[in-house]
Amino acid sequence: MSVKSLPKEEYWLPGHAACSGCPASLGLRMLGKALGGRFALVVPAGCTTVIQGTFPRTPSRVPILNIAFAASAAAASGLKAAFEVRNLDVPVVVWAGDGGTVDIGLQALSGAAERGEDILYICYDNEAYQNTGIQRSGATPIGAWTTTTPFGKRERRKEAPLIVAAHRVPYVATASVAYPLDFVEKVKKAASKRGFKYIHLHAPCPTGWRFPPSKTIEVGKAAVETGMWVLYEVENGLLKLTGRSTGLWDPAKRKPLEDYLKLQGRFAHLFKPENRWMLEELKKHVDENWSRIRATLERGGRLF
């Protein structure tokens, strides 16, 4: 797929309430193009609630069911069931943040995945509760500053895509707003499959990660090039690296992690001598992640 082959039609209208340089807004724009505007969105509490603005206007040209924080996967299950009984072949897509996915929404997500609901669940991961003022979430990486981890988060993030993959759903993928075409292709692929599909979209947030809004894409690319974020697919239990992450299991091919960290204010404290251990922990986490991926690939990619 090329940039030029992307549909010109916009389903996400300008002049909305997203912050300048917002990755969620870009993701929503690409989602609309990937599915040609014919789908229904379910949106729990989060940045996207606010981005939609206040009644009576919305930037979305696809219908949205707004729902409470923990409820999106269940509400989407119900919406899809209604479409089925009305014989409407309309995809239902959840668009939830990391808090609404890996923390408060995890139970409903797991339930819908286990039931094999025919929905596409997309988590746009800006690695904290950005909407409420940058509080740490279960997806905040170790070491990162947030307003509730003022000296850096001590714990590792949850691997939500792998948790979903453990439900043996037909399709799980990670993506990044810095690679929109890869994301669009994954959305299309997911939409072509029946059953529960999950895409975890890395969404560098200038507001919460403390970088200039012009660098959303640059930060997103650095995350992938340094191996901090990994692009992959899990189809029927088989893991495969995709796009820019292909081959990065070889540490020599990965850029130094500092290239990613130094772009962001939230990691600035890691470069103070007294916090050296936190930087080492973060590097260890990334290396271990890759060792596990490499081991998986060496046995043919079989995860489950």
Binding site: L65, A70, A74, S77, L79, K80, A82, R86, S110
Partner: peptide, 18 residues
Amino acid sequence: ESEHSAMAACIGAAAGGA
């Protein structure tokens, strides 16, 4: 998997016309 989800699913279904 829970009552919270039971009502959430009903909300989705009712909003979808069921």
